[in-house]
């Protein structure tokens, strides 16, 4: 089964570029151009992983994370922030809200794919462990 990634990014070019990189690496990608459109899409698609920009109009990345954390169906989905903010404060804020990882712009394809793979693998391992334990 192919891994499904949901990408939320307000910059159109970045959205397309990330989507292409992920598709070339054989991921299924669903996109949203802002947080407001992203939240219902997450609930509908129930992706394996979420990549989300922080600075967006309408609803920002923190808002998205907060919204999905409140829903038990989506709360456990691995969540990675994509951000142009490089301050330690911003990093801490994102992690404190429960993000699993953090990618600072600009990043290249390797950094992106490594981060995504690491997160998927971890989920896979935990799920398998849980399966054998029961």
């Amino acid at each position: 089964m192919r891994v499904k990634i949901l990408l939320i990014e307000d910059n159109h070019e970045m959205l397309e570029n990330i989507e292409e990189i992920l598709e070339l690496a054989d991921y299924d990608v669903v996109t949203a151009e802002n947080g407001k459109k992203g939240v219902p899409l997450i609930k509908k698609e129930l992706p394996d992983l979420i990549l989300c920009d922080i600075m967006m109009p309408e609803l920002d990345g923190y808002g998205v994370l907060d919204a999905i954390s409140r829903d038990p169906l989506t709360a456990a989905i691995p969540f990675i922030f994509l951000t142009a903010k490089s301050g330690k404060e911003d990093f801490r804020k994102g992690m404190n809200l429960g993000a699993d990882d953090y990618l600072t712009k600009p990043f290249d394809d390797r950094q992106l794919l490594d981060t995504v793979e690491r997160r998927i693998k971890k989920v896979y391992l935990t799920t398998r462990q849980r399966f054998w334990n029961t």
């Binding site: 570029n17 142009a84 712009k105 600009p106 990043f107 394809d109």
Partner: peptide, 13 residues
């Protein structure tokens, strides 16, 4: 950072 990101990801692609 935003345009630099685009440049970097486009070169990767």
């Amino acid at each position: 950072r935003t345009p630099l990101s685009t440049i970097l990801s486009s070169t990767s692609l």
